[in-house]
């Protein structure tokens, strides 16, 4: 596959002018500006990630629009999840991982040594690929974050936070009668919404979602997608997905990653209807990936 790819690249270089704006070096990202989006507060500049000696991400720069859904797409192993995990520094847990470059939230560098990673993760929540509720009750799952961050002053406070989080995650009506039964007893889709409620309960500004629907059936997926659409009113959401349809359905901005490089980013509609880069076009039409 890679050989055909480079052959194509070569013809591009020598052939007549391609539809893209400039003949850029291979890792120059194609950028299409967002129209009428909120000002970005979360920005990444020249982010590179190494696992030991292996480089997984090359100079990724992107602005994440406020109170909108941004989706990262690309074939497996393209670095989109790696980049997502850089945003709340979950890569810190991997011993051999090294992150270069700047990611800023409100102009504060997330990798600054003065920054407390615990606070950061309270501001930037995360939902994982496989639903991972704790082996505790539904109530305890949601109350976990508020408890460790001391967000509730009393028991009623805590109950209110749990209830409103479950409501925002669209789960409250389904579980209100069994808040104290184990969270692991829920169905896959419910578990994932429980994890979203858990993330919301801490009051984050940004929610990162790493392929949140890949372990779910189509109906549960549809419910979660609807939920994501509702959540963007209050939260900035970044979602990694394998499904281009999902990216097209839920996101306003899309970024296409390939082999550790950010190839193209811009308004979702534009990427899917009028991709500027050849590789993006190939991926969207199913020729690579």
């Amino acid at each position: 596959m890679s050989t055909t790819l480079s052959a194509r690249g070569a013809t591009d270089m020598s052939g007549t002018s391609a539809p893209s704006t400039t003949q850029a070096p291979a890792h120059q990202t194609v950028r299409v500006p967002m129209v009428d989006a909120n000002l970005p507060r979360l920005k990444a500049k020249d982010v590179s990630v190494f696992y030991g000696d292996k480089q997984a991400l090359y100079d990724v720069s992107i602005d994440v629009p406020e109170k909108a859904v941004t989706s990262f797409i690309g074939p497996s192993g393209c670095g989109k999840s790696t980049f997502l995990r850089c945003i709340n520094r979950m890569n810190d847990t991997i011993e051999s991982c090294r992150v270069l470059g700047d990611i800023t939230l409100d102009d504060q560098n997330l990798y600054d040594s003065s920054l407390d990673v615990v606070e950061l993760r309270a501001r930037i929540g995360m939902v994982f690929q496989k639903p991972n509720p704790f082996p505790k009750s539904i109530f305890e799952n949601v109350a976990y974050g508020p408890k460790i961050h001391g967000l509730a002053r009393s028991k009623t406070d805590l109950e209110e936070i749990v209830e409103s989080s479950l409501k925002k995650a669209g789960l409250f009506n389904e579980v209100k009668d069994r808040l104290h039964s184990p969270g692991t007893g829920l169905s896959g889709g419910q578990q994932q919404r429980l994890c979203i409620a858990r993330a919301i309960a801490v009051g984050p500004e940004v929610i990162l979602m790493d392929e949140p629907c890949s372990a779910l059936d189509p109906i549960a997926t549809a419910i979660i997608e609807e939920l994501i659409d509702e959540l963007r009113e209050n939260y900035t959401i970044v979602i990694v997905t394998h499904s281009m349809q999902q990216a097209a359905r839920v996101s306003q901005k899309t970024a296409f990653f390939h082999l550790g490089k950010l190839i193209e980013e811009g308004p979702t509609e534009g990427i899917f209807t009028n991709p500027r880069d050849k590789k993006t076009q190939d991926y969207i039409t199913g020729r690579i990936g």
Partner: peptide
């Protein structure tokens, strides 16, 4: 205890000790 439990707790902004005490040891 699956890595996803640790990740889930750490991603909520729990410290390692809180993760051990609240999630890993009970599990």
């Amino acid at each position: 205890v699956p890595q996803s439990m640790r990740d889930g707790s750490l991603a909520m902004g729990a410290t390692r000790a809180e993760t051990v005490k609240n999630v890993l040891l009970p599990a």
